[in-house]
Each structure stands twice: as structure tokens, then as C-alpha cells.
């Protein structure tokens, strides 16, 4: 227990006023961080030799609609392989401006995970190189993992996408033309 506390206080010492709250539910180390300069905070966590949280494990989000203010929370799981410690970081994100800084410059694997959070929660990641929908299709309306998205909502059918750039076998069309010529307007 003492070691846990020392780790959390070490993190708190390095990040200073960015830390809103620390807690230890079920023996996990949990940190609530302010979202301003988020990438810089993660850079310290990753590169500081004392902290050494060099491995990003997971990025996700939770929607606390009508339960908590601010509404969203982006949750990061990072770990230190050398020290065998995990750290969970929760970043509150308000509803009127759902955006946090992207971590892709630090971990390239954050790309897919942040795209998934954008896709399902509609939280934007600033400076993300390629923020597109990933699990759903581009025409999908709304963000299904938000709590105000009804579970039985049916999305409208989308028209077929233009096949621009796709290889089309012109020979079959020519064959049809030949047939039309030889048979007149019967076809």
C-alpha cells in the first residue's frame, strides 16, 4: 500500500496542478487529469525515467449523461513494464466542446483507438492525423455509445457509393454494343 501511495505522489509531484484527484479503488492507481496540455502530461509520464509509463494499453471513453458533470470521460490505461505498475488516467471532457489532444505523436497505436472513440462517442482528438469513422460507416448519423442514443434506433439506408477509381471491365459493355449493333434495337 505504501508503495502505491509513493507512486501516486511521485506522479502528482511531476504533473503538479494538472492532477485534479488521485484515488486507489481496488488497489488500482487512478488519476484524474485536466485536459489542458494533455499531451505534455503524457509526455512526462512516458519519458520521465522515474515514472517510465512507456506502454499505452488502452484508450476508451465513458458517457456519464445526467450523472456527472462534465459529461464525458476519456480513460487511458498506461503501464510501466519495468516496474510492473499500471496507471489509469481519467480525463473529464465537457459536452459543449468534446475534444482532447491526440496522443498519436507519442504512441502511433493511439491512432486506431482514438478513431474508435471518435466513431462511437463523438469526442474529437485534436491533431489526429486521420480522424475518420472506423467501426461504423461514413454515412452513420450520431454516436451510438452515447447514452442518449436509443438502442433500437434504425439508421436510414444509404445510397450506393460512386465507384470512382474502381476498375470496370469495359469488355462486357462492348460486347453488349456489338450485340445491339448486330441485332438492331431488339435488346
Amino acid at each position: 500500500m505504501a508503495e502505491t501511495n509513493s507512486q501516486l505522489s511521485a506522479v502528482q509531484g511531476k504533473l503538479g496542478s494538472k492532477v485534479i484527484e488521485t484515488s486507489e479503488p481496488q488497489g488500482d492507481d487512478v488519476l484524474i487529469l485536466d485536459r489542458s496540455d494533455l499531451r505534455e502530461s503524457f509526455r512526462i509520464l512516458k519519458e520521465d525515467p522515474e515514472l517510465d509509463f512507456a506502454f499505452l494499453s488502452d484508450i476508451t471513453a465513458v458517457d456519464y449523461w445526467h450523472k456527472k458533470e462534465p459529461r464525458f470521460e476519456v480513460v487511458y490505461q498506461i503501464l510501466s513494464r519495468a516496474k510492473r505498475r499500471r496507471l489509469r488516467i481519467r480525463v473529464p471532457v465537457p459536452e459543449n466542446d468534446p475534444s482532447v489532444e491526440s496522443l498519436t505523436p507519442l504512441w502511433r497505436g493511439a491512432n486506431f483507438m482514438e478513431r474508435e472513440v471518435w466513431d462511437l462517442f463523438g469526442i474529437r482528438f485534436i491533431d489526429h492525423p486521420d480522424l475518420r469513422r472506423i467501426l461504423l460507416y461514413d454515412e452513420f448519423k450520431g454516436y451510438p455509445l452515447r447514452k442518449d442514443y436509443p438502442v433500437n434506433l434504425v439508421q436510414p439506408r444509404v445510397p450506393e457509393r460512386p465507384v470512382d477509381g474502381t476498375f470496370v471491365d469495359e469488355r462486357s459493355r462492348n460486347k453488349l454494343l456489338h450485340l445491339q449493333k448486330s441485332l438492331g434495337s431488339k435488346i
Partner: peptide, 21 residues
Amino acid sequence: GETYFAVEGGNGELGFYIVSD
């Protein structure tokens, strides 16, 4: 509460992040 637990799956770290109200 909320918690995260990971096991070694066939392809790597299989983690579950669960939140309960």
C-alpha cells in the same frame, strides 16, 4: 465503481474496463 482487468488472451492483452452504477 470502475475497474480494469487484463488477462493474456490468445492474441495479447485482453482487457476489460467495466463501469458499474
